[in-house]
């Protein structure tokens, strides 16, 4: 894997404590980390890259049919935390996760648990659109095919059409399903990746800055899509855009240097932040 421990450690430590405005204050999470109808429950999660601690005791719930956004300055650990939720961090050598992360009551870091079916349940959309260099059809068909979700070609076609429709891409690509996915525009590629993710019918979708490589129009389409997807899935989204977090999410979590500083209803976090660091960040004093 290209991401090494050192690199991740450097990224998470990008912001030294000297840059922080003011002295040390409590890093205990402010606000209610739980939610009424949780799908994923994370408690006291620590993540280490080698000897560097990237995440410090983070607890957070992700509820059914809600969008949780994670914001914070670069290197604050929000992506690292997101990647813990489907064990994508397993691919990084020297990465260690402690604490408990449960999906529907099942600890996903349990020794006996296989990360492969977990990733079918917790799908992921990445920062940079990364369609396979294959046809649009094959891109979406790959997941259902390897998991054996469909029994016939007709059924598979149906799943593909359904996924592309949910991702809002069907009308644009229905006549060229055999064309390479890499030939689409950036926004279309990202929607293709979303279609690929929902084709395996996951329960949770993780999105790691899905719009950072897209123009405002493509971003608007994806945001609309996220809102529609909320009806069927739980979504955790990492974003650098506070406006985006405000637009798409119901709850917002603010990360700072590996700590989860504040969690709350999105409205409350943006209009009435309780922690000074949160306030500094959303008012643009740093970050």
């Amino acid at each position: 894997m290209s991401t090494t421990v050192d690199e991740m450690a450097r990224r998470t430590g990008a912001m030294s404590s000297a840059e922080l405005a003011g002295g040390r204050e409590s890093r205990a999470t402010v606000g209610d980390v739980t939610c009424a109808n949780p799908r994923m429950v994370c408690r006291d999660v620590d993540v280490f890259y080698g000897s560097t601690q990237a995440i410090k005791g983070v607890s957070l719930d992700i509820g059914k049919n809600e969008v949780v956004s994670m914001i914070g300055p670069s290197g604050c650990g929000k992506s690292t935390f997101l990647r813990c939720l489907n064990r994508m961090n397993d691919t990084i050598d020297g990465c260690r996760v402690t604490g408990s992360i449960k999906l529907d009551g099942q600890d996903i870091y349990d020794k006996g648990l296989d990360p492969v079916p977990l990733r079918a349940q917790v799908g992921m959309v990445f920062q940079k659109p990364n369609p396979f260099p294959k046809s649009i059809y094959e891109n979406v068909a790959y997941g259902p095919r390897i998991h054996g979700l469909t029994n016939s070609k007709a059924e598979l076609d149906e799943v593909i059409e359904g996924s592309l429709q949910k991702a809002g891409l069907w009308n644009e690509v229905k006549d060229r399903l055999d064309k390479p996915g890499t030939g689409l525009s950036g926004g279309q590629q990202q929607r293709l990746c979303i279609a690929r993710t929902i084709a395996v019918s996951p329960e949770v979708i993780l999105m790691d800055e899905p719009c950072s490589a897209l123009d405002p129009i493509a971003t608007a389409i994806i945001e609309e899509l996220i809102d529609e997807l909320r009806a069927n899935y739980s979504i955790a989204i990492v974003t650098h855009s506070m406006q985006q977090a405000a637009r798409v999410s119901q709850r917002t979590a603010y990360f700072h240097l590996g700590d989860l500083i504040e969690v709350g209803e999105t409205n409350q976090v943006f209009t009435n932040p309780k922690h000074r660091l949160t306030e500094d960040y959303i008012t643009g004093r740093f970050g």
């Binding site: 492969v116 990445f126 990364n130 396979f132």
Partner: peptide
């Protein structure tokens, strides 16, 4: 081979060998 391809495949639940 860009790592994003590996992440994409792992992300939809392919096993490492797949």
């Amino acid at each position: 081979v860009p790592p994003s391809i590996r992440e994409a495949a792992l992300g939809v639940g392919a096993s490492p060998l797949q």
